Amino acid sequence: MPPAPPSAERFRLVGPSVVLDPRIHAVRRDIADIGLADRVFAPHYSAPEVSACALPAAMLRAAPDDDAVAVSQLVQGEAFAVVDISVGWAWGYGLHDCYVGYLRAEMLGPLVAPTHVVTAPVALVFATPDIKAPVIATRTIGARLHGIAEGAFVATAGGYIHARHLAPVETPVADPVAVAETLVGAPYLWGGRGDGGVDCSGLVQRALGLAGIAAPRDSDQQRSLGREIGEGEALRRGDIILFPGHVGMMVDDTRLIHANAHWMAVTIEPLDTVTGRGAAIVARRRIA
């Protein structure tokens, strides 16, 4: 189960407000997460209510408007802490990374304890436990579902998914780069984390997340991952390479996999080719 949002027991008003990163702290002029009451003053505080994405996927937006820029994406079953609901829009943050944004309240539903997570780029949902049965829906990589094994399938509330497209939630994928490699060719989508496309930091976050490694949402935040690779150390599979506003993962000692706007897709190419286009490396991080 995801961690519960901060409780009201932390409520303490002392000292001046501090400046917090609004991407990962739910604070506005009119309201704030009660868990931040020891750091910021707000006219109102709210104890978040935890729900989950009820659709195959939902874009998290910077403002309560369907035309507002997407800042991230939730997929089915991922937990979302609702701090405020107004005019049909929920404002809060995903519990997997605390990233703040808006989505339509109708996109949320009750949080159900998941048993399985989708590890394929797209998992087909069949009407019956038979690969020849009609496909009635799809689920996106990272979707968290409750199901019961039935032979080669897992029975979920929405239909049957082949077990090869799933993994038990308590069993991390062994190789995060292998996860990223399954998404080669996926469209580059700003804010995407797998459904319909993915952006650079979304690719890294999704790959590491399925390997049981929590990662922040944005590339500059991902500079906190692991340890800095020394100047004389050779790169290896799984190393994180950061550029200004961009990030990718090493497939081996010379090639980078990344979701990029140059090709508008997830691609594998020599790291030297990427830097040759003018992308300066700002950090090299090793997870383990």
Rank of each mutant, 00 (worst) to 15 (best):
P6K: 09
L13A: 06
V14T: 13
P16G: 02
S17A: 08
V19R: 10
D21C: 14
P22T: 05
P22E: 00
I24L: 07
I24H: 06
R28N: 00
R29D: 10
D30P: 08
I31T: 11
L36P: 07
F41W: 04
A42E: 11
A47S: 15
V50W: 04
A52T: 10
C53S: 05
A58N: 01
M59Q: 07
R61W: 11
P64C: 14
P64T: 12
D65V: 15
D65P: 10
D66H: 13
D67I: 09
V71Q: 00
Q76V: 03
Q76I: 10
A79C: 12
A79G: 09
F80I: 09
A81R: 07
V83Q: 02
S86L: 13
G92I: 07
H96Y: 10
A105M: 14
E106L: 15
V112D: 08
T115L: 03
H116D: 03
P121D: 14
V122R: 10
V122L: 15
V125T: 09
F126D: 01
F126R: 06
T128F: 05
P129R: 02
I131R: 14
K132C: 14
A133Y: 00
V135W: 00
I136Y: 02
I136L: 09
A137W: 05
I141L: 07
G151E: 05
G158R: 01
G158M: 11
G159A: 05
I161W: 08
R164P: 04
H165P: 05
P168N: 01
P168L: 01
E170P: 00
A174D: 14
A178F: 04
V179Q: 07
A180P: 06
L183E: 03
A186V: 07
A186Q: 11
A186F: 07
L189T: 09
W190G: 04
V198N: 03
D199V: 08
L208Y: 08
I213V: 15
Q222Y: 08
G226R: 00
R227L: 10
R227E: 12
R227V: 15
E231P: 08
G232L: 13
A234W: 06
R237M: 02
D239R: 03
I240G: 06
F243C: 05
M249R: 01
V251G: 08
R255D: 12
H258I: 03
H262C: 02
H262W: 06
M264R: 14
T267E: 11
I268R: 04
I268L: 00
E269Q: 12
D272H: 11
V274I: 14
T275L: 10
V282C: 09
V282N: 00
R284W: 02
R286P: 05
I287W: 04
